[in-house]
Design a protein around this nucleic acid. Structure first.
Lengths: 95, 95
DNA sequence: TTATTATTTCGACGATTATCGAAGTATGCT
DNA sequence: AGCATACTTCGATAATCGTCGAAATAATAA
C-alpha cells in the first residue's frame, strides 16, 4: 500500500469546498450529459468562492488523480477518474 | 451528507504519518490482542517521529471519530471505531 | 523514596494552505 | 476590431499544520 499516494488523495478531499466540488463532479458524471462530464462554469455558481480558488482546487483534485479536466472551447469539463474511486473504496478493510 | 464531517475525516488521514498510524491501529485491531486494541508504545517504535507528535496525531484521529483511546496503567490503547469505517466505505458511489 | 517509563502539555518555528484581487490568456460573439 | 466570457497565473496575506525540545503528569520499578 502506497501510503503517500493515499494520503495525497485524502488531502485533496480534506477541505469542505474541495470535497463538495468533487462530489458535485461525481453527481454530474452520473447524469451523463452530452459533454460526458461536468461543466465547471455551471457548478461554480453554487459555491461562493472566487474563480481563482476554484481553479486552484480543481488542479489539486487533478494532481491527486481524482479527476481529469478537458478544455472544450472556452469551457472546462471535469471528469471523474473511476479507477481512483475503486481504489478509494478499497483502502479500508471490510469489517 | 454532512460534508464538513467527512472532510474532517479526510483531513485526519491527509498526512502520511497519521494515515500510517491509523492503518497500523487497524492492523492490530484485527489481531485481537488480549488488550483488545493497539498498544501505542509498541507501534511508536516503527515511526521516526517524537512522542509529542504521536500524541498530537492520535488526538486528531480521535477528534475525527476514527479511533477511541483508553488508558491502561501508564499505557495507552487505541481502538478502531468500526462505525466510521462503514461510513467511510459509503461516501463514494459504487460505479 | 528515587528513578524510570509512557504519555501529555506548552511554546515555538518553519512550512504549507485557502483565499483574494489584479492582471493575463484564450475563445467566441457582434 | 472590439468586447464579453471562462478560466489561469501571480503575488500577497492570514490562518493552519507538523514537528520539536523542554517541562509536566502519572504510573510502575528498584
Amino acid at each position: 500500500m502506497d501510503v503517500k499516494k493515499y494520503s495525497n488523495i485524502m488531502k485533496a478531499l480534506s477541505h469542505p469546498n474541495r470535497l463538495e466540488l468533487f462530489l458535485e463532479i461525481i453527481k454530474y458524471q452520473e447524469k451523463d450529459y452530452e459533454t460526458g462530464g461536468c461543466l465547471i462554469s455551471e457548478i461554480v455558481k453554487y459555491f461562493n468562492i472566487g474563480a481563482p480558488t476554484i481553479s486552484h482546487h480543481l488542479k489539486e483534485l487533478s494532481n491527486a488523480g481524482l479527476i481529469t479536466t478537458e478544455k472544450r472551447g472556452k469551457f472546462l469539463i471535469a471528469k471523474l477518474n473511476k479507477d481512483v474511486i475503486h481504489e478509494l473504496n478499497g483502502i479500508f478493510p471490510k469489517l
